[in-house]
Amino acid sequence: MIIIDRLHRRAFVRAFACAGTAFAAFTVRSFGDDRKAETIKKDGDEKTATKTPDAEKPASRPAENATKNADPFEIEVEARMNLVLARFGERIDDKARKDVRREVEAIVRRARELRKYPLDNGDGPGTVFVPYRAPIA
């Protein structure tokens, strides 16, 4: 029982830590890597600051600076990888992590390709929702 409790606690701490990292990185990532994004990135930081009082603390600044200077692709991969690890980390050993990360990189690469494709507001998804009503017996 003690072992299980410890495992649960460790899993919780890891998940919490990873989710936090993911959120921070997403805030930066979501706004892309061009000049226009730089302005919005500041907005993003402000949003983070208002929602997360800890972000005001000086201790968080080095990490924020690090993410600002990092490759946006790597930041996005890291954030998504952390989402996977937060949920399934206990089942993925060090060797497997490399494979999983490679797959995550492919997913991010595809997502970035798709973001380049222009869409209009009226371009709905290729699936159609059909309301259900049981046939008359």
């Binding site: 996977v84 949920r87 997502a111 798709l114 869409l119 709905g124 290729g126």
Partner: peptide, 27 residues
């Protein structure tokens, strides 16, 4: 062995990625 870990990374796909792909699909 690769199938034992192959499904985890798919959980890094976001809802917005999926919907964007479905919107592009229609075109």
């Amino acid at each position: 062995p690769e199938d034992r870990i192959g499904g985890y990374a798919d959980h890094a796909t976001l809802a917005t990625d999926y919907l964007r792909a479905q919107r592009i699909r229609a075109k």
